[in-house]
Simulated scan of single mutants.
Amino acid sequence: MRMIIKTAAIVGAFNLAAATAALGSDVKPTIVLVHGAFAESASWNGVVADLTRDGFSVIAAANPLRSVGGDAAHVASVVSSVKGPVVLVGHSYAGAVISAMADQEANVKALVYVAAFEPDVGESSLELTGKFPGSTLGPALAAPVNLPNGEQDLYIQQDKFPAQFAADVPEADARLMAAAQRPVNQAALADRAVRAAWKTIPSWSIYGAADRNIPPAAMAFMADRAHARKTVVVPGASHLVMVSHPQEVAALIEDAANAK
């Protein structure tokens, strides 16, 4: 009798595990959003609103903007805390960050690059910015801020921020973002990639046709090289395409989340 009861319990547990696995296959992935240089987590607010309305769990992670390797380790710790599949989304410099760690996290099912760098091994964000003409970021930068450790932080001049970074965002909002911008360590932009997760993880890409930070030609090149499942170019959109066109960005993220 004891053996029969034990066997029945094992069978019951197996059936429960199978049912749980079946349900788990339909669970929506968590969306982890990573901001880039000169932005911060609130830049995703419109995208978060759309995604949560459609039933997705969302984390807008804080990106330290100190170095590609260090920032990648920080984002990896966020991703590894998620129980279940993840769609990892990076804006601008954060594209380099997610490319550096995503293939080391087994639960990352898709990458979405939002006006973002997709460096190959050995490439830097700075190098990719200059690969094609069109960026006007250099003259818009403020004088570097010297840090106690001898490194330097970069900001965009506040009066130039709206036109340079957020030309299609209402000016009042752009000026608030200029004041709240988070600096990037100058050395981080020159960090050369040691991994390229887009080579093994499916990717999607969206960017604005009027981006003044990363030339649209550079982003087209990177998306094509990564064999993006889908590339969306938003006419007239600035570098802050997720602020000015949150619905289009959220729709592409959901496309990646629902892909089989």
Rank of each mutant, 00 (worst) to 15 (best):
Ile5His: 12
Ile5Trp: 14
Gly12Trp: 07
Ala13Leu: 14
Ala18Gln: 13
Ala19Gly: 08
Leu23Asp: 11
Leu23Arg: 13
Asp26Val: 09
Val27Gln: 15
Val27Cys: 08
Pro29His: 07
Leu33Asp: 00
Val34Ser: 06
Ala37Gln: 03
Ala39Phe: 12
Ser41Arg: 14
Ala42Arg: 13
Asn45Glu: 13
Leu51Trp: 11
Gly55Lys: 03
Gly55Gln: 02
Leu65Asp: 05
Arg66Glu: 14
Val68Arg: 13
Gly69Ala: 15
Ser77Arg: 13
Ser80Asn: 15
Ser81Phe: 12
Val86Cys: 02
Gly90Glu: 00
His91Val: 04
Ser92His: 11
Ala94Trp: 07
Ala94Arg: 03
Ala94Leu: 10
Val97Arg: 02
Ala102Ser: 13
Gln104Tyr: 08
Ala106Met: 10
Ala106Tyr: 06
Val108Ser: 01
Ala110Tyr: 08
Val112Tyr: 10
Val114Cys: 05
Ala115Tyr: 01
Glu118Phe: 09
Gly122Asp: 07
Gly122Lys: 12
Glu123Tyr: 09
Ser124Arg: 02
Leu128Tyr: 09
Leu128His: 06
Lys131Arg: 15
Pro133Tyr: 04
Pro133Arg: 00
Ala140Gln: 07
Leu141Trp: 12
Ala142Phe: 09
Pro144Trp: 07
Pro148Tyr: 10
Glu151Pro: 01
Tyr155Cys: 09
Tyr155Gly: 05
Asp159Gln: 13
Lys160Leu: 15
Ala163Lys: 08
Ala167Cys: 06
Asp168Cys: 02
Ala172Gly: 05
Ala174Lys: 07
Met177Arg: 15
Gln181Glu: 09
Arg182His: 14
Ala190His: 07
Ala193Tyr: 03
Ala197Trp: 13
Ser205Cys: 11
Ala209Val: 03
Arg212Thr: 10
Asn213Glu: 14
Ile214Cys: 02
Pro215Arg: 05
Pro215Phe: 10
Pro215Thr: 00
Pro216Val: 01
Ala217Trp: 09
Phe221Arg: 07
Ala223Pro: 08
Ala226Cys: 03
His227Ile: 05
Thr231Ser: 13
His239Pro: 11
Val243Asp: 02
Ser244Trp: 00
Gln247Asp: 14
Glu248Cys: 09
Ala250Arg: 10
Leu252Asn: 00
Glu254Ser: 06
Glu254His: 05
Glu254Ala: 12
Ala257Trp: 11
Asn258Glu: 13
Asn258Trp: 10
Ala259Thr: 08
Ala259Ile: 08
Lys260Tyr: 12
